[in-house]
Design a protein around this nucleic acid. Structure first.
Length: 827
RNA sequence: GCCGAAGUGGCGGAACUGGCAGACGCACGGGACUUAAAAUCCCGCGGGAGUUAAAUCCCGUACCGGUUCGAUUCCGGUCUUCGGCACCA
């Protein structure tokens, strides 16, 4: 072994060898239990950033640990390679998106390999490769076949800067998730995936996901937004039509004093036609049209409405009720019509107050005198109470009345119980080039025709013009013009491509069968591996990617392609990497380049630091000095090993004889085995890599002290050193491999079995007992480990210190925790 | 407003099932080695009282209260920070 730790020589050497030996290949047929470890695959932006380093280091430790524990591990990587930046680069530099993307992939692959992550590179996939997107298109058609894809004209989210539509999930605070440009509404005919068909099961099955963070599940529940209510009908005075209203508070129906339609509600125009209300209503609607969703529906925005001159009839009370339109009612939730109950809804209360509408109480707050039931309320009462002013339902508690009213409406055919979701169908069309083309053809005779499977993939053409604000695919003559697959007549292709989240919704399945040319994946390949045992990634995908992937898995299971109905058994959402207290970002100028860190300190140091500085799910504060500290730690191990090797050169370490050790030898061995116990638990059960590393640091510190002792036993030292290396191997794979070889081992350290602990080494002859008086520590004593409680108590009473604290007092109780402490309760 | 997470030294963090608060690392201080510095190795390092030095004692895990022999840990309440959702009828 060299005297100096030279990571720049060691790391590339082993990386090359591991790659050549295909050291991390997942076995296709194996007797071993399987373990599927997965990090969210990266978008090939061109450079690895520090968040990637964290993500992949975490998964690599898990993968390496599981391999050493005897699992057949699948640990793949690939590229989420479609997307807008490639196209923007194309506009800017006049290079084709494919070229830009593949160049970026090559660079990031080089960077990834310099980190020494144990990927099975033979399974690498890129979503922009025709061999991959062929199957994305195939899956689209499968969903189409099963009636889960439809085309619909709707007011959709439009990002003017990206020149494309967006899914609801991609609109954050009214702005484009990618570029933060405010999103506007546009009426367009677009392709949708019917994720709402799966709303219920996507919600229910969250309860099965015990290995997911509560936070992510809560976010998904929130997003899906299930509510139980009643849909009822209000007749319109003087007309045949009825207005459907959805409410979760059917118990308050006797308190309705107005009804509000969304301005876009189809009945509005008809109702005001040829009346004096037509003009103002049209003006109001025009005003609403110009506003995006946030400007219209944020809680900050004042409620604004307009009476439209018509009345409807309350189905239960028969009362005549004015019809309004208002900004806060959305056309695409529920029925687009809301009953206004000002007394028992805060929003309605504000609206009614503003427009001087009556606010009659129908639920009496508990404790309030019934005589006050017609007095005005100071604020909306939204809690439980007793029914008043509600005809036959008076006197019931409102909970019971809820069901009785629902029953009554159902019996009379005036309404029915209904479940509503906040979740909307997934808009997957994008007016962009760099994505998987939607495999559809429009024929004058046959209408909309799916591209037959044999004609897949629909390749992206190269004769396109990239210009800002325009879908490049429409400029490709060769692409647009085609023939109808059914009748052979001239036809044109769909020029929209798919949302890239389509591509990333099934990539974890493709890894199990990455080169299959007959199908996206075979049962034989996918069934043994799925589902993913441990998935790790950023929480920013809590809804988008994770919800879509769950949807895909469930649908593909229903189509018969999968046996599992959830893709990710366990999920870990890692925290952000911060510097100076805020997230690293180019705009803040607080970015650290992983490549630079690896060049200066080596991959092992970078990995150790990022795993040591904080537990994985928490945000991590970058510290240059912290990195140096980790570099020192690795150097410390190197010197320890180098020194050990030098002193023992030519000599053979005698075999370890645990029975003949002195006290210090026993203590050293005990610490070695305690460390095995701690690291195994921290890595395997808790993912607390920071404490695992600190345990190894402690063992290193202890060995430094032990080896200097004149009576130090070489076999004990060797055992400690070798365990330091093996335990550290998943964290710092290069240095441990190099030292391991230097110590004369022929086989790779990564092929070693994970150490099991020697229980006998943990036993102690003497233990420390903490003595408390009234819960305060007053003394510690050394006693034989197997001392009896009675004997211990006897000894304690003779101690001067204890005597002092109990003197003149009565010992009323003695609490003994075996092997740990004794607490004397005195008075 | 609703939901979720967190609050511990100068800093990052530890304390696993209620049992020695502050492991480990950083920063800082002292010593050894060196002509010297760096590197390295060893020791110290929450606050206060006390003392030549120590022993020792008191306080201390956001705040207030409770349960308990004993609470960073459990319960109730308050405050602060971060994240998500937010006129969803």
């Amino acid at each position: 072994m060299q005297e100096k730790y030279s990571f720049s020589e060691i790391e590339p050497k082993w990386q090359k060898r591991w790659l050549e030996e295909k050291a991390w290949r997942a076995e296709e047929h194996s007797e071993k239990p399987k373990f599927y470890a997965l990090a969210m695959f990266p978008y090939p932006s061109g450079n690895l950033h520090i968040g990637h380093v964290r993500n992949y280091s975490i998964v690599d430790v898990i993968a390496r640990f599981k391999r050493m524990q005897g699992y057949n591990v699948l640990h793949p990587i690939g590229w989420d390679a479609f997307g807008l930046p490639a196209e923007n680069a194309a506009i800017k530099n006049q290079t084709p998106p494919a070229e830009w993307t593949w160049k970026n992939i090559a660079n990031m692959k080089r960077q990834l390999q310099s980190m020494g992550i144990s990927y099975d590179w033979e399974r690498e996939v890129a979503t922009c490769h025709p061999g991959y997107y062929k199957w994305t298109q195939w899956i689209f058609l499968e969903f189409y076949k099963h009636g889960l894809v439809y085309k619909k004209k709707a007011a959709v989210n439009w990002c003017p800067s990206c020149a494309t539509v967006l899914a609801n999930e991609q609109v954050v605070d009214g702005a484009c998730e990618r570029c933060e440009t405010p999103v506007t509404k546009k009426d367009l005919e677009q392709w949708f995936f019917k994720i709402t068909d799966y709303a219920d099961v996507l919600l229910d099955d969250l309860n099965k996901l015990e290995g997911w963070p509560e936070k992510v599940k809560a976010m998904q529940r929130n997003w899906i937004g299930r509510s139980e209510g009643v849909e009822t009908e209000f007749g319109i005075e003087g007309r045949e039509e009825r207005i459907k209203v959805y409410t979760t508070r059917i118990d308050t129906i006797f308190g309705v004093t107005y009804l509000v339609l969304a301005p876009e509600h189809p009945l509005v125009q008809e109702l005001v036609a040829n009346s004096k209300f037509e003009q103002p209503v049209m003006a109001f609607m025009d005003k609403m049209k110009g506003l995006n969703e946030i400007a219209r529906t944020s809680t900050e925005v004042e409620k604004e409405g307009l009476f439209i001159g018509k009345y409807c009839i309350n189905p239960l009370s028969g009362k005549r009720i004015p019809i309004w339109i208002a900004n806060y009612v959305l056309v695409d939730y529920g029925t687009g019509a809301v009953m206004g109950v000002p007394a028992h809804d805060e929003r309605d209360f504000a609206f009614a107050t503003k427009y001087n509408l009556p606010i009659p109480m129908v639920i009496l707050p508990p404790g309030m005198d019934a005589a006050a039931k017609d007095k005005p309320l100071a604020a909306a009462f939204t809690e439980e109470g007793t029914m008043v002013n509600s005809g036959e339902f008076d006197g019931l508690d409102n909970d019971t009345a809820w069901d009785q009213i629902a029953d009554a409406l159902e019996k009379r055919g005036l309404g029915e119980r209904k479940v509503n979701f906040r979740l909307r169908d997934w808009l997957i069309s994008r007016q962009r080039y760099w994505g998987a083309a939607i495999p559809m053809v429009y024929c004058e005779h046959c209408g909309t025709v799916p591209v037959p499977e044999k004609d897949l993939p629909v390749l992206l053409p190269e004769d396109v013009v990239f210009k800002a604000g325009e879908n490049p695919l429409t400029t490709s003559e060769s692409f647009v013009h085609t023939t109808c697959p059914t009748c052979g007549a001239p036809a044109h292709r769909e020029t929209d491509t798919m949302d890239t989240f389509m591509c990333s919704s099934w990539y974890y399945l493709r890894y199990t069968d990455p080169r299959n040319e007959e199908e996206p994946f075979s049962h034989e390949a996918v069934d043994p591996w799925m589902n993913v045992d441990q998935y790790v990634g950023g929480v920013e995908h809590a809804i988008l990617h994770l919800l879509y992937s769950r949807f895909f898995t469930k649908a593909l299971r229903d189509f018969g392609f999968l046996k599992v109905d959830e893709p990710f058994q366990n999920l870990l959402t890692q925290g952000m990497v911060c510097m100076d207290g805020s997230k690293m970002s180019k705009s803040k100028g607080n970015v650290v380049s992983p490549e630079e860190i690896i060049n200066r300190f080596g991959a092992d140091t970078a990995r150790i630091f990022i795993l040591f500085a904080a537990p994985p799910e928490r945000d991590l504060e970058w510290s240059e000095q912290g990195v140096e500290g980790c570099y020192r730690f690795l150097n410390r191990i190197w010197r320890l090993a180098a020194q050990y090797e030098a002193t023992l050169k030519g000599k053979k370490t005698p075999p370890l004889d645990p029975g003949s050790l002195d006290t210090e030898g026993k203590a050293m061995r005990r610490q070695t085995h305690l460390t095995i116990q701690r690291v195994t638990n921290d890595v395997g059960q808790r993912f607390n890599f920071n404490t695992a590393i600190s345990a190894i640091m402690e063992l290193v510190n202890a060995l430094y002290l032990y080896k200097e002792k004149p009576e130090a036993n070489p076999a004990v030292a060797k055992e400690a050193l070798e365990h330091i290396l093996v335990l550290l191997a998943p964290f710092a794979p290069h240095i441990t491999e190099e030292i391991w070889a230097g110590l004369g081992h022929a086989q790779s350290i990564h092929a070693q079995e994970w150490p099991s602990l020697d229980e006998a080494a943990l036993t102690q002859d003497e233990i420390t007992i903490v003595l408390q008086v009234n819960g305060k520590v007053r003394e510690r004593i050394q006693v034989p480990a197997e001392i009896s409680a009675a004997e211990l108590e006897k000894q304690i009473r003779t101690l001067p210190k204890i005597h002092e604290w109990t003197q003149g007092k009565e010992i009323i109780k003695v609490v003994t925790v075996p092997g740990k402490l004794v607490n004397l309760v005195v008075r």
